[in-house]
C-alpha cells in the first residue's frame, strides 16, 4: 500500500474492516488527536483524555473483530464511543469531578467574564461555566463549536434526534448567557 495515498474516510472504514494494518494506523493518526482534544474539553484532565483515546480505539477494534464496527461513517462512530466512555466516567466519578472543578483557579461563579483580566482567566471562567451544563448540553456545545460538527452528526454521537440536539443547544446557550452575563 502506498504511504502517500490519502484515503477517504469511507476507504479507511472498508480497509479497517478487513484489518488492513496500514489503514488502521492511518485511522489512529487521523482521529486520536481530535478525540484527545474532545475528551480534554469535556473532562479537563490530560490523563482522562489519554485514557479515553486508548479505550475508544480498543473498543473500536473489538467491534471490528466481532464484525460490528461502523457501517458507513467512521468519525461519529469513534466520537460516540468516546462520548459513552466519558458519560460512564461522569457517572462513576461524579464527586471527583466536582472536587476537581472547585480546585481550579477560583473565579466566583457570579463573576462576569468581562471582568477577568487575561484571556487565560476568561477561558478558565468560561470552562467552569461550561462544566456547569448538563452532560448532554456540554457535549452539544463542544461538538458543535469546538469540533465543528453539524446537528445530524451530533445527534448520531449522543444518540438523540436532531430536534433534541437543537433543544439542547438552545438551552445550553441560554444557560451560558445567564451565567456569563
Amino acid at each position: 500500500m502506498d504511504d502517500t495515498v490519502d484515503y477517504s474516510d469511507t476507504e479507511l472504514l472498508n480497509l479497517g474492516q478487513q484489518f488492513d494494518q496500514q489503514a488502521l494506523a492511518e485511522i489512529y493518526d487521523r482521529y486520536s488527536d481530535p478525540l484527545y482534544r474532545y475528551a480534554y474539553r469535556l473532562t479537563g484532565s490530560e490523563q482522562m483524555a489519554e485514557d479515553c483515546v486508548s479505550e475508544t480505539f480498543s473498543r473500536y477494534l473489538n467491534a471490528l473483530e466481532k464484525k460490528k464496527g461502523p457501517r458507513d461513517l467512521l468519525r461519529p462512530y469513534l466520537y460516540r464511543i468516546a462520548h459513552n466512555w466519558i458519560m460512564d466516567q461522569f457517572r462513576k466519578n461524579k464527586s471527583e469531578i466536582s472536587i476537581e472543578a472547585t480546585t481550579q483557579p477560583f473565579v466566583a461563579r457570579d463573576q462576569h467574564v468581562d471582568d477577568a483580566v487575561s484571556e487565560k482567566e476568561q477561558a478558565e471562567l468560561l470552562r467552569q461555566h461550561v462544566e456547569r451544563l448538563s452532560p448532554d448540553q456540554r457535549h452539544v456545545i463542544v461538538l458543535k463549536y469546538l469540533e465543528q460538527m453539524d446537528n445530524a452528526e451530533i445527534a448520531r454521537i449522543i444518540g438523540r434526534n436532531v430536534g433534541s440536539v437543537k433543544a439542547l443547544h438552545s438551552r445550553a446557550l441560554n444557560n451560558l448567557r445567564d451565567w456569563i452575563g
Partner: peptide, 8 residues
Amino acid sequence: IIEMLDLL
C-alpha cells in the same frame, strides 16, 4: 457567547 467559546 459563541464567539467566546473560541477561548476554549
